[in-house]
Write a protein that binds this DNA or RNA. Structure first.
Lengths: 223, 223
DNA sequence: AAAAGTATTTTTGTATCCACGTATCATAAA
DNA sequence: TTTATGATACGTGGATACAAAAATACTTTT
């Protein structure tokens, strides 16, 4: 018998990378709740490595704002206050607004068609629960941002989407599913079609700031 | 977490924290050049600790964009292309614009006086070389941001100032010192005095986007 | 019951070892 | 001279064991 059951080969990713992905995924899905303690040894055992790469992953997650690392008191899952949630939407509004403005020169018929397809997919995914919808929603916003061709901007926006993801899920699952979502996003596409970069920026800002209160209100009620 | 003009109190000094501060400071001052390799052992010896906390500090610095960490190839000092420098100024423009808009309700005569004092100090610091001027400049922008009372926004803006700091120093030292700086910043104060939040936001955006080409052009010439 | 002191647990940092990927450089082949 | 090839040195990533420091829990005493 060949070495079929020898030691699992670490293919491309480092252990730290694996720990980071593992934890980020769990946190995005809401598997841990705010305030939960993350014990390096446990996590390490869970994914079959030592605590060292896990601790390094903690640092990155802390930079992303997904966990809080307090000296000598370990790692706890970060939660967002309503104010913080609001703040993130404020930041998103200007960043994604900027992205739309910068993307405008590259918006052509093809791109617009893609966005409408994504909108349809988002709609359909909405039937089957929060998980798919949230992903499609991120995809919609992400594709628009991508056309700005600004790597750092894209990255920052993406990071913000990750942080609010658990709350989007709760919102989508427990509240009535965002009814206005389709029209809101259709309005963004319409603004993109107009060709007016400043106008599209404004519409995107309004869209994002408009959804913030609904989500914030709901989240504050559900605790 | 970068802390150019952060308000966070220093809790306790872990070794990782010390390594992070040490390296961030060195990178901000331009003690290392883009592409330089940072060898954990060396740095660890330099500040009297082992490799581990240094490596953890690397992760944070990488999240901040100050270094690049490639698997099995260690840690190298990040450099910004002209495009990236531009991008950061674009992001700064909307973030600091937002900060000004949100700060407006808290702008009173006292605040305006403080800003004018800071402007004077910046001017005076300009005589004595880049080091003081850059710090004062960050302080000026930082104090305005602080009035927005948005911790995450403040933090992100601060992080961006850290990343561009070495380039600001080069610019200030080697180019003619930014002559228009005083008027530019005075214009921002004037806009704040007007009480019109949207107008002030726009002035701040223009100020930031206006300085970008000068710096970018100079940096691209000096390599 | 409150305070003080002691023990225990947890976190953090150190030291050491090893496997593996990368880079360097000399040598061989084209 | 250029291009492959291969040996070798080096650094990184990771594991493990251990020590120290801080926080927490637990007594004991007043």
């Amino acid at each position: 018998m060949p070495a079929a059951f020898s030691v699992e080969p670490r293919l491309s990713a480092t252990a730290e990378e694996e720990a980071y992905r593992h934890l980020q995924r769990a946190l995005r899905l809401g598997r841990y709740k705010p305030g939960d303690r993350l014990i390096p040894e446990e996590i390490a055992a869970e994914i079959g490595m030592s605590r060292m790469p896990v601790r390094e992953a903690f640092r990155r997650l802390a930079s992303d704002g997904l966990v809080v690392l307090r000296p000598n008191r370990g790692c706890v899952v970060a939660g967002l206050t309503v104010d913080e949630l609001y703040e993130i939407f404020e930041i998103r509004s200007v960043l994604e607004g900027l992205a739309v403005r910068l993307a405008m020169p590259r918006i052509d018929e093809e791109a617009l068609e893609e966005f409408e397809n994504l909108l349809d997919r988002m709609e359909r995914a909405g039937q089957s629960g929060s998980s798919d919808w949230v992903i499609r929603h991120q995809e919609f916003h992400g594709r628009i941002c991508a056309l700005s061709r600004r790597p750092k901007l894209i990255h920052q926006v993406s990071a913000l989407h990750v942080v609010i993801e658990p709350y989007m899920r709760i919102w989508f699952d427990d509240a009535d599913k965002p009814l206005s979502a389709r029209e809101e996003h259709a309005a963004v596409i319409a603004a993109l079609r107009s060709g007016d970069a400043r106008h599209a920026e404004e519409v995107m800002q309004d869209h994002i700031l408009g959804t913030a209160p609904m989500l914030a209100e709901f989240v504050s009620a559900s605790r």
